[in-house]
């Protein structure tokens, strides 16, 4: 916590970078962490809450062990990523934005992962899997389940 803030020398313009690092460290942004950042950077807590809810890359609830991001940017969307999201959602038994009861997987819809040529694109734990079909996406999920059982 202190290390992360010190890394940016308490620079308030590094607010987003600090939130990114904290989100990675805790797998979400705990309220207490945001309060400390607010205090150390002299940035109102409301600014941090605003940013934390605005960007999809921040979480206010603890995430699962594996983070599945389904890209719903324009290019992925026209190539049917909505249906991939639906399929994964059904298979995991959770809605986008939720975490499975066993805490293994969090399913997220994101707006663009910046690799449009690879659409439809799913990223699991920051590893990109491009040109997916529904079937491939489901198999990929099963492989993750098996691998980590």
């Amino acid at each position: 916590m202190e290390q992360i803030i010190d890394k940016y020398r308490g620079d308030s313009t590094a607010m987003i970078a600090i939130l990114h690092d904290l989100n990675a460290a805790f797998r979400y942004l705990p309220r207490e962490a945001l309060e400390i950042v607010s205090d150390r950077l002299s940035v109102p807590l409301s600014y941090l809450y605003s940013a934390a809810t605005f960007y999809r890359s921040f979480d206010l609830e603890p995430c699962g062990e594996h983070e599945i991001q389904v890209c719903l940017g324009t290019a992925c969307h026209v190539r049917g990523s909505e249906r991939i999201l639906d399929a994964l959602s059904r298979r995991l038994g959770i809605k986008p934005g939720e975490t499975t009861a066993d805490g293994k997987f969090t399913l997220k819809r994101v707006n663009c992962l910046g690799a449009c040529a690879l659409g439809p694109l799913v990223s699991i734990d920051q590893k990109h899997h491009g040109h997916l079909t529904i079937h491939q996406a489901e198999r990929l999920l099963e492989a993750y389940k098996d691998e980590h059982d």
């Binding site: 807590l45 409301s46 600014y47």
Partner: peptide, 25 residues
Amino acid sequence: KSAISFAFRGVERRVSAPFDQEPDA
């Protein structure tokens, strides 16, 4: 005081206190 701010985005955008709880500020 900046006790409140915009939160969320798109159709979910709203004005809110941090964590939608009574703001200290």
